[in-house]
C-alpha cells in the first residue's frame, strides 16, 4: 500500500487513530456490567481476602471466605450471562500482549494482598487483612469498570501534540 501510504496525511492518520480509540471506548461503555454486580463481585472478593487473613483453625472467618467465594462465583456467572445476552464473549485468556501484562500484574498484586494480609497479621500487624481486603475490593472494582472484557484498552491511541 505504498502509494496510499504516501497519500495518507498526518491529519487523516490522526483521525483514524482517534476513531479507533473512540470506538473502543464506546463499545467498552456498552460492555460494562451493572454497578451492583460489580459491587457484589468486589465485596465478595474482599470478603475472601479478609476471611483468609483472619482464619484461625476454621473459625467463623472461614465461613466469610466461603460466602465470599460463593458471592464472587455468582456475580461472575451473572456478568458472563449478561455479556452473552448483550452479544459479547469476554476474553478468558487475554489475546494481546498488553492484556496479558495487565492480567499478570493484577494477579501479582492480588497474590501479594492475599498472602501479605495474612502474613502481616501473623507477625503482629492486626489490621493487615482489613487493609488488604479494602485495597483488593477497590482494585477489582476499578479493573472491572475499566477493562470489563479482560482486554487492555489504551487510554489514548493518538498524541495530538
Amino acid at each position: 500500500m505504498t502509494n496510499e501510504q504516501n497519500t495518507v496525511s498526518r491529519k487523516e492518520a490522526s483521525e483514524a487513530l482517534d476513531s479507533i480509540a473512540a470506538n473502543k471506548h464506546r463499545i467498552i461503555e456498552t460492555q460494562r456490567p451493572p454497578i451492583l454486580l460489580t459491587l457484589l463481585a468486589s465485596i465478595s472478593y474482599a470478603a475472601i481476602i479478609f476471611g483468609y487473613g483472619m482464619t484461625e483453625h476454621e473459625n467463623q472467618w472461614a465461613l466469610a471466605m466461603v460466602l465470599g467465594g460463593l458471592g464472587f462465583a455468582i456475580s461472575m456467572g451473572l456478568s458472563y450471562y449478561t455479556f452473552r445476552i448483550l452479544g459479547v464473549k469476554p476474553s478468558i485468556i487475554p489475546k494481546s500482549s498488553a492484556s496479558m501484562r495487565l492480567n499478570l500484574m493484577s494477579g501479582l498484586v492480588f497474590a501479594i494482598l492475599i498472602i501479605g494480609g495474612r502474613e502481616l497479621r501473623l507477625i503482629g500487624f492486626e489490621y493487615a487483612p482489613h487493609i488488604a481486603a479494602v485495597l483488593a475490593g477497590i482494585i477489582l472494582f476499578g479493573l472491572i469498570n475499566k477493562y470489563p472484557t479482560g482486554e487492555y484498552i489504551e487510554e489514548k491511541t493518538n498524541d495530538k501534540s
Binding site: 476513531s19 479507533i20 470506538n23 473502543k24 463499545i27 467498552i28 456498552t30 460492555q31 448483550l86 452479544g87 459479547v88 464473549k89 469476554p90 476474553s91 478468558i92 489475546k95 494481546s96 472484557t149 482486554e151 484498552i153
Partner: peptide
C-alpha cells in the same frame, strides 16, 4: 472500526 471493536473481546455478535 470493525477490527478495533473486535479487539476489545473474544467474540462479538453481528447485531452488536
Amino acid at each position: 472500526q470493525i477490527c478495533a471493536i473486535l479487539a476489545t473481546s473474544a467474540e462479538l455478535e453481528f447485531k452488536l
